[in-house]
Design a binder for these strands. Structure first.
Length: 351
DNA sequence: CTTGCCGGGAG
DNA sequence: CTCCCGGCAAG
């Protein structure tokens, strides 16, 4: 029984998520750029999530946004430059030293990640806005480092490891970290994996390829909550670890992904192919009920936090929506979808 | 109680 | 494979 359940889950997963390694068309590459931009946009604005929506505008003009966290370009030499998303008049304003504490740990290079003590996004919000926000239950965060080199996507558990990987495998350098010029920093990203209640079936805690991550992780609505946090990691970026609102099935975020977040529903994305040239204003795509990032983007890992549910509860919760039986009634049984007629899960009114 | 649907059986 | 249904679990 559980096996078939897993298969079902897998179906759901594969239908909503593409394999990251899929070959990309030009268009998709462009979408990656946009994705990158959106991520960064979200990263830079997300602390505002905790303010009421009314305050969004105010917040956008607020101090740290003016600091400019928008990537406006990424030159071939590998250096980001920054400018505000809507106000390009101020591109060179240095980034404010926002809650630097949350970055020190993984900038330190030698460390293997500050897993459990890393500030969570609540802290960032509190620091920035001085709001006494009720603290969320501490998550068991697993910090991983993912290689962003094109078609690589290797995930290692330590920054040093990923740096060495990039240095040796991609940059073709054979020396120790001592002779590093720090270029590796551009080619990996830190992934915070919220393993909260992910006990069942999620073997992705150990270093695995992203394709495995996304294709085998139980993501359906019945899956345990899983949360990736992604933020870029190098000296020229100052971004807080944040949640990005989700676009998946459970998401009801009305319009954009830079505003109107629903903090309880979150996901984040990551992308590959670091040498991305991004120009222009990031798009803020609207999304349909069941699709958004995850289906537009081949390299997006989208994970939604699901309602609390006992891990290991095998039986799928019953569908909520109206089913053939309810809609047509017993007397019109021949109007039912075949599945309903056969007492199987309704195919016509899928949840 | 009703309803959705899993597991399994019959043809 | 199609079709059916016992029976369980959720509501």
């Amino acid at each position: 029984r559980s096996v078939s359940l897993l298969e079902q889950k897998r179906k759901v997963v594969s239908s909503s998520i593409d394999v990251p390694h899929a070959r990309k068309s030009e268009e998709e590459v462009d979408m990656d750029k946009v994705t990158a931009a959106m991520v960064l946009t979200s990263l830079s604005t997300s602390p505002l999530v905790r303010s009421p929506p009314v305050k969004m505008g105010e917040g956008l003009n607020g101090s740290w946004k003016d600091g400019g966290f928008m990537p406006s370009s990424y030159s071939s030499s590998g250096y980001w430059s920054w400018s505000a998303p809507s106000d390009h008049s101020n591109p060179s304003t240095p980034s404010p030293p926002l809650s630097a504490d949350s970055f020190k740990p993984f900038r330190a290079g030698s460390l293997s990640g500050p897993p459990d003590d890393a500030l969570d996004e609540q802290d960032a919000g509190s620091l920035l806005f001085d709001e006494p926000i009720p603290r969320k239950r501490k998550n068991s965060m697993k910090v991983m480092f993912k290689c962003l080199w094109k078609n690589c996507g290797k995930v290692l558990s330590t920054a040093a490891g990923i740096q060495r990987h990039i240095r040796t495998v991609h940059l073709g350098r054979n020396c120790d970290s001592e002779c590093s010029d720090g270029e590796e920093d551009f080619y990996y990203t830190e992934i915070k994996l919220n393993t909260d209640s992910v006990a069942d079936g999620l073997s992705s805690l150990s270093p695995v390829s992203p394709s495995v991550l996304s294709s085998s992780t139980p993501l359906s609505r019945s899956a345990p909550s899983t949360l990736y946090l992604v933020h870029a990691d190098h000296a020229y970026q100052a971004t807080a670890p944040v949640n990005i609102p989700c676009t998946s099935t459970a998401c009801s975020t009305p319009s954009t992904h830079t505003a109107g977040f629903t903090p309880s529903t979150s996901c984040s994305i990551s992308w590959q192919s670091p040498p991305v040239t991004f120009t222009g204003t990031p798009a803020s795509p609207t999304h349909g009920r069941t699709q958004g990032f995850s289906e537009q983007r081949s390299q997006t890992i989208t994970v939604l936090s699901s309602p609390p549910r006992a891990a290991g509860s095998l039986r799928k919760s019953r569908g909520e929506g109206k089913k053939c039986r309810k809609v047509y009634g017993m007397e019109n049984r021949d109007m039912w979808c075949t599945a309903c007629r056969w007492k199987k899960a309704c195919q016509r009114f899928v949840d």
